[in-house]
């Protein structure tokens, strides 16, 4: 039996999974209610462009630059 891979997103200490085969960084940000003006994605230490596609099996990290207080 084959285990279906997911897109793994690390965001502020939480691990979120998306069932999609592939997604644009833009779409992931949107799902997390973030804007590319202050948030971005990192894969293996590399900063990704909003229009880049990540696919199932990828693990990415979302950095939200905005802080309050």
């Amino acid at each position: 039996m084959q285990v279906k891979e997911k897109i793994y997103v690390l965001y502020r200490g939480k691990k979120i999974e998306f069932e999609e085969e592939k997604m644009k960084v833009k779409e992931i940000l949107k799902k997390l209610n973030l804007s590319g003006e202050y948030a971005f994605a990192v894969r293996n230490g590399e900063i990704l462009d909003e229009n880049q596609t990540v696919k199932a099996g990828d693990e990415i990290k979302i950095v939200n630059a905005i802080s309050g207080g």
Binding site: I47, S67, G68
Partner: peptide, 27 residues
């Protein structure tokens, strides 16, 4: 900008705390 500083931290491989102070919520 905040994003410029965050990108610098990532690229310079600085290990910082990502969590927000719990009192910052809703500020």
């Amino acid at each position: 900008s905040e994003k410029e500083a965050a990108m610098y931290a990532v690229l310079a491989q600085i290990d910082y705390i990502e969590d927000e102070c719990p009192f910052a919520e809703g500020s």
